[in-house]
Design a protein around this nucleic acid. Structure first.
Lengths: 145, 145
DNA sequence: GGATGATTCCCCACATTTCCCCACGCGCCT
DNA sequence: AGGCGCGTGGGGAAATGTGGGGAATCATCC
């Protein structure tokens, strides 16, 4: 089942953020309540359930490490990656470096994005939406054909 | 069986709206009385029965998430998406963010639209109709050839 | 090597929201 | 005229998000 929906939750003083119950239910039991959290695209945080992440690792496995660009990309993505598990209250704690990267302070926007979950600083996400040149209807036309 | 017909129903204080009985009957049992509700085009709400929605997810699955436009589109559609089920009275409850998006207050227009159901604010729908440059006959000529 | 301090992790408790169930009234069909 | 189906409204119980405290772990300094 895919991740969908959005929520604006608080980031407590310990860097913890709740994952919406509906997204927790969308996780495969194979993921074992565990995510790989890493740097996302466009200054947000990506959260892959463990089972999905392993298929990304397979993609990386197939890359040619003798290519300079590949090496750079692998460094950039793996450097931020961490395993995090849900606590008894359905929260994860976000590593400090990622909190800085995503510019998170006391409030976080949690987005379901099909195969992963995204965590944004709310203002950052507003800014991202505003810089998009095309509206929803136009994007749909060009992407879903 | 396709969704057809229209109805203007009330939205109660809890954000619940009844789905017309004739549309409920048009649902496949495979949908399990469950919809995926999401942002529609032109500021309305789309309601896909679960079985139909899964084929949309299949389309999304095939998209390349490393493409910027794709990411934006997936964020825009999945962010508003939610699973909702009919309660014992044949109603669904609409998530607050979608109520705002569609500008719904106390009354909603339910439209059958072949493979999905649409929910509009009545005034919003009037405005939409008035903006259309072409009349019914002209549209038919250009679309149905 | 041991003690101290900080950090992380896990558990418990509260308040709010959400969900599910029950009840009413109107209209249509029999 | 009665019954059944349908849309509308409200109340109670369970689930969900939020905050804090204490124990275990790790690193640091003496």
């Amino acid at each position: 089942m895919a991740f969908k929906g959005q929520a604006e939750y608080s980031v407590d003083s310990k860097g913890r953020v709740a994952i919406p119950a509906q997204m927790r239910k969308a996780m495969s039991p194979a993921a074992n309540e565990t995510f790989t959290i890493t740097r996302g695209f466009e200054d947000c945080i990506f959260l892959y359930p463990m089972d999905r992440w392993s298929s990304i690792e397979d993609e990386i496995e197939d890359l040619n490490m003798y290519d300079r660009e590949v090496r750079t990309f692998v460094r950039l993505i793996m450097r931020w990656a961490n395993e995090v598990s849900l606590d008894g209250q359905g929260r994860i704690s976000i590593p400090n470096p990622l909190l800085d990267l995503a510019d998170l302070d006391d409030s976080a926007l949690i987005l379901g994005a099909y195969d992963h979950i995204e965590i944004w600083d709310p203002e950052q996400f507003d800014g991202y939406l505003n810089e998009q040149p095309d509206d929803y209807e136009t994007l749909a036309e060009s992407v879903m054909r």
